[in-house]
Simulated scan of single mutants.
Amino acid sequence: MKRKSLGLMIVLILSIFAFTGCSPTASKVGTAPDGSEIAIEKATMKFMKDTQAGGYKLVSTEDLNKWVNEKKALIIIDTMPADSFAKGHIPGAVNAELPKTTLADATDEQKAAFIKLLGEDKSKTVVVYCGYVACARSDVGAVLAKQQGFNEVYRLPGGITTWQEAKYDVAK
Rank of each mutant, 00 (worst) to 15 (best):
G7E: 10
G7I: 06
G7F: 03
G7R: 07
V11Q: 07
L12M: 11
L12T: 14
T20I: 00
T25Y: 14
T31M: 14
P33T: 09
S36F: 10
A39Q: 12
E41A: 14
T44Q: 14
K46L: 14
M48A: 13
M48R: 13
K49I: 12
K49R: 13
T51K: 15
T51Q: 15
T51A: 15
Q52M: 11
G55E: 10
Y56N: 08
K57V: 09
L58F: 12
D63Q: 15
L64C: 12
N65S: 15
K66Q: 14
K66Y: 09
W67M: 15
E70H: 13
I75R: 07
I75C: 03
I76W: 10
M80T: 10
P81G: 08
A82L: 11
K87G: 07
G88K: 05
P91M: 03
G92F: 06
A93R: 07
P99Y: 03
T101H: 02
T102N: 07
A106E: 03
E109K: 15
Q110P: 05
K111R: 13
I115D: 03
K116M: 03
K116W: 04
L118G: 06
L118Q: 06
E120T: 15
D121H: 02
D121G: 03
K122Y: 05
K122A: 06
T125F: 04
V126M: 07
Y129M: 00
C130Y: 02
G131R: 00
Y132P: 00
Y132F: 08
A136I: 00
R137P: 00
D139P: 02
D139M: 01
V140D: 02
G141V: 02
V143C: 03
Q148R: 06
L156C: 01
L156M: 01
P157G: 04
P157W: 03
T161S: 12
W163I: 00
V170K: 06
K172L: 03
K172I: 04
K172N: 12
